[in-house]
Computed example of a mutant assay.
Amino acid sequence: MADNNFFPFIGTESDYIPETNNELPLYREFAWDFAKDDFIKDNSGDFKIVEGKEALQVWIYHALHTNRYEHEIFSWDYGTELITLVGQRFTKGLTESEAFRYIKEALLVNEYLLSVKKNSIVFDGDVLHIDITVKTVYGEVRLVV
Rank of each mutant, 00 (worst) to 15 (best):
Y112Q: 11
L24T: 07
D77H: 10
V122P: 00
E54L: 03
D126L: 11
F34E: 10
F39C: 03
R28Y: 02
S44K: 14
F74L: 05
S75L: 04
W59S: 13
S97G: 03
G139D: 08
L64A: 05
E81Y: 02
T20F: 15
S115T: 09
L56S: 01
L128N: 08
N21S: 12
H129R: 10
I83T: 07
E105Y: 07
V86L: 14
V122N: 11
L85R: 10
V127G: 00
Q88R: 15
G52N: 12
V50T: 12
V86G: 00
L113E: 02
V122A: 04
W76E: 06
F100W: 03
R28S: 14
G125K: 05
I130S: 03
L107H: 09
I130V: 15
D126P: 01
Y61V: 03
I121T: 03
K48M: 14
T84G: 01
R101P: 00
F34Y: 12
L94T: 12
R89A: 09
L24G: 05
Y69G: 01
Y102K: 10
Y61R: 13
R101Q: 12
V134P: 03
Y112W: 07
A106M: 04
Y102D: 04
K118M: 11
S115W: 01
Q57P: 00
A31P: 08
E70C: 02
Q57E: 15
V116D: 01
P18K: 13
P25M: 10
T66C: 10
Y138K: 11
H71V: 12
E72M: 06
D124W: 00
V137E: 03
Y27R: 12
G139T: 07
L56D: 01
E51F: 08
I40M: 08
L94R: 14
L128H: 12
Y102C: 07
V50F: 06
A31C: 08
K92T: 12
D46Y: 14
L114T: 12
I73E: 07
L85T: 04
Y69D: 13
W76K: 14
G93K: 13
S44F: 06
E105I: 04
I40D: 04
I60L: 08
G93T: 11
V137S: 09
A106L: 03
